[in-house]
Nucleic acid binder design. Structure first.
Length: 211
DNA sequence: TGCCAGGCCGGGT
DNA sequence: ACCCGGCATGGC
């Protein structure tokens, strides 16, 4: 299932929807925090949480690191799972200060494989979150797979219905150039497609640009 | 009104 | 190695 086909799907999506301007966040730390906050959660709710953090001037590794769990949990409340996510954000900042002096730049200054392993070692950062941070915060070429990606591309028989994360990711990365900008848009366009057309409940989409 | 959203972990089989 | 319950708000 080829490279050309996948490229053509990307082009169709881009032509239909245009650039998506992801990640809708300002700077690498906001993107990283957003990646954790958006786990199984609508972006609209995440924005409220991020705005709360901004209003409290708390959106930095140091500030989050120093803030109490309860205070942080209250600020991010609109994003849902606020206790879980407060813990996860703190797990990340603890990790960042313990191993990288609190510097995202230092964290990101290593090979992708190694960076991915480091991120996955943080409790609360799984594959999708790690890859989102790598692509959208570190600007390194890795393909982000989410629920939409699996459902859309298995429905169209590009991948098996029970394909796991790494299998899906491999499918994309083996058939596309490792281009950060394109990976960025492609994933965002898949999410857009999922929201707009496909997969409201479990019906096949009719207007889907993939065809 | 109920269902879902850009997951992940921990415990049980 | 999977499977499942838990985590929680806001929008439609």
């Amino acid at each position: 299932m080829g490279t050309k086909k996948l490229n053509s799907i990307y082009k169709k999506l881009y032509t239909s929807f245009g650039p998506q301007y992801w990640w809708p966040g300002d700077g690498p730390f906001e993107v990283t925090a957003g990646a954790i906050l958006t786990q199984n959660t609508n972006w609209q709710n995440v924005e409220k949480a991020i705005n709360n953090l901004k209003a409290a001037r708390a959106l930095s590794p140091k500030k989050l690191h120093e803030m109490s769990h309860d205070k942080l949990a209250q600020l991010i409340r609109p994003a849902g799972y606020f206790n879980v996510k407060a813990r996860r954000l703190k797990n990340f900042t603890n990790f960042l200060f313990n191993k990288y002096g609190g510097s995202l730049k230092k964290l990101f200054n290593q090979g992708i494989e190694s960076l991915r392993k480091e991120l996955l070692s943080v409790n609360g950062i799984g594959e999708e979150t790690a890859d989102s941070i790598i692509l959208y915060a570190a600007n390194l070429p890795i393909f982000v797979v989410d629920a939409y990606t699996k459902r859309i591309f298995s429905r169209h028989n590009f991948i098996r219905h029970d394909a796991d994360y790494s299998e899906v990711q491999k499918f994309f990365m083996e058939n596309l150039n490792k281009d950060v900008k394109m990976f960025n848009e492609f994933h965002a366009l898949i999410v857009k497609l999922g929201k707009e057309f496909c997969l409201k409940s479990n019906q096949r989409c009719k207007l889907c640009p993939i065809g």
